[in-house]
Design a protein around this nucleic acid. Structure first.
Lengths: 352, 352
DNA sequence: CGGAAATGTGGCATCGATGCCACATTCCAC
DNA sequence: GTGGAATGTGGCATCGATGCCACATTTCCG
């Protein structure tokens, strides 16, 4: 980029001072060709001799030309902005997801428009409308309601759902292999002799929670154990609620191990265990689905399932871009990102 | 938003199937007025009778009209997309910053285009160029080099620097009150009797590190202590490096307390202390600037300075929007976000 | 060496919304 | 009842890049 307007201007140009930027016209004049040729030489593929191309490039560089995406998008009915609609950037899960998406988009010269919907259906729909207005060719969303992906698709926007599926969706989706991951995690505990394992889970309507719960059950089945339904604690997506649920599991149900279905619930569970000064893992084992950094910093470090969140984000972006480029067959694609069990110090043999 | 095209379409419309969206023309026809009137009725303020306005609104709603931002931006030479340029979304500091920014922007009906530059000058410049191409009216950046804000400003884009200042910048800036915060933190340790306090710091060229170091020195001066320069460990922005620096401080310099200048360095320091099985705070105290969630989950919880990162983000956004709206006087504004000392269990009296 | 095919470039209309101005009404005061 | 100000609406050009087609030039082959 060549610096235009050498002298640094005042902080605030008097409101909307022009700062006229060069256009293709200017470049054309500078290079002695027509605007059409400039356009082709700089962007569109083909149709320009190397000599002209070089000359145009040089001219553009010289006068500091930068393409106007608005004009380009309007005329060519395309855009390189991708909408990313997530619940909460402050949760490391979503942050990692967004980071992976952004990385991949940037590499492909796309931009990420990030919107937090705070898990609220109304805000989600509002965001969808904004993205529609921006004419983005695609959106990656961790959906709150099925309506959002639906509306986007009905308006010709490609959609990839991340982390979860809602009902009978027709969009592509990238999820963690929840069932397998949760099953491995549960079997790890069973192998240590645990038979009374509490499961903290916040929702089971979304595929995410349902998958993890299914894995929990499958592990029991695989080992000829029946699941005591009382040990499945349905709680809300909130550390404090998880703490209360943990308390109940400990008081009433004599669990020897606890699994939390995500990183937020794990905080609550851990807080309760620490509060009671229970020795982990000597007196009780704790494990979590969704490895986030703090889990390896606490003492003992938590046994977790790493769902490769960043890779999941990359995967969403790759899938969406392929869809936009029309490289994919029509039928919807479901990508399962493998989950990996990481055994750390928080799980141990069942106390006798 | 009224759902257009009721039936769910196939996942992938055959490449670029039209999906023609209604335009002002369509709304105009539907409402029996002219396109100009539609435009005024829906967006521009003034000049439309309540009756017409209502009629147009209804018509737009009925046919599912959504303004095309590209066309609007092109014509009116404005945009509601704001560029946000940060180093690393996976670091909770930046994630919180971005969350605060997004929240405030969304409330003002602006969108956030988020780009990670990985702390790399080249990527930062590339991102700046992209944002220029998008014709964003403003950018919030945690700058890597001074060139980036400079180039943006020269092209008429308003800039707010977040978290740090580089050299003689002419842009608005929002920073933590580093000096005061670090001073309070240091004085807290001094009050506990510590005189050999190690300071882990990764850079001092940016205002951030310089401010924190200044606070560290000020605290000593306020208490008539001289600073042993050997206790200032200049390390790189990396947990492992911080760990090595911590090791050196412990081996060679008999520190009784360690302050780390940010959340990343704190991880390294903590790892080293745990590895040596040092009792915190009985044998050594540890404290950090920049409170992030894991710091209250570890045992003992870390004494920190909370720099209100989310609020810092909000503040950046508010400042930028005010600038864009021309509500601010010309001279550059510097906002210092107060820092708050949070005493937890990791700091205690100096061992005798 | 002529004509067809290939290649490269320019002209012009266009994407969709809006700024600006002109003009048709309505309203009021004298 | 008439002039002139308000008020509300429509017409038209325009933002900047690009798609498409026409045409000029070169290349190639029989």
């Amino acid at each position: 980029m060549s610096p235009r307007g050498q002298a640094a201007r005042a902080v605030s140009q008097p409101a909307q001072q022009p700062v006229r930027r060069p256009t293709v016209q200017d470049v054309a004049r500078e290079a002695g060709v027509s605007p059409s040729t400039v356009s082709r030489a700089l962007h569109t593929r083909g149709y320009a001799s190397p000599a002209v191309r070089a000359r145009v490039r040089a001219a553009a560089e010289r006068i500091g030309y930068v393409t106007d995406h608005n004009a380009r998008n309007l005329r060519s009915r395309t855009s390189t902005s991708i909408g990313v609609l997530i619940s909460d950037l402050r949760n490391p899960f979503y942050a990692d997801l967004a980071a992976g998406i952004e990385e991949e988009l940037r590499a492909a010269e796309y931009q990420m428009v990030l919107v937090n919907d705070n898990g609220d259906p109304a805000e989600e729909m509002q965001a969808a409308e904004t993205l529609l207005a921006m004419r983005v060719p695609g959106v990656i969303v961790t959906p709150v309601t099925a309506k959002c992906p639906q509306v986007l698709q009905n308006n010709g926007v490609h959609v990839v759902c991340a982390d979860r599926e809602l009902g009978r969706s027709t969009s592509d989706v990238v999820v963690s292999d929840n069932k397998t991951g949760a099953c491995e995690l549960t079997e790890h505990l069973i192998a240590l002799g645990h038979t009374r394992i509490g499961m903290l889970i916040d929702e089971t309507k979304w595929s995410t929670g349902a998958g993890r719960l299914a894995g929990f059950r499958a592990a029991h089945a695989n080992n000829d154990l029946s699941v005591d339904e009382n040990l499945i604690a349905y709680t809300s997506f909130d550390a404090d609620a998880a703490r209360l649920s943990t308390r109940k599991l400990l008081n009433k149900h004599e669990v020897t191990a606890i699994i939390s279905a995500n990183n937020v619930l794990a905080q609550g569970a851990l807080a309760e265990l620490k509060d009671r000064r229970l020795k982990i893992p000597r007196q009780i084992s704790l494990a979590a689905y969704d490895d986030v950094p703090w889990m390896s910093l606490v003492q003992p470090a938590l046994t977790t399932v790493d769902q490769s969140t960043v890779e999941m984000g990359r995967s969403c972006a790759r899938l969406l871009l392929a869809r936009i480029r029309g490289e994919l067959p029509a039928r919807r694609r479901l990508v399962k990102v493998p989950a990996r069990l990481i055994v750390r110090g928080s799980t141990g043999p069942v106390p006798r």
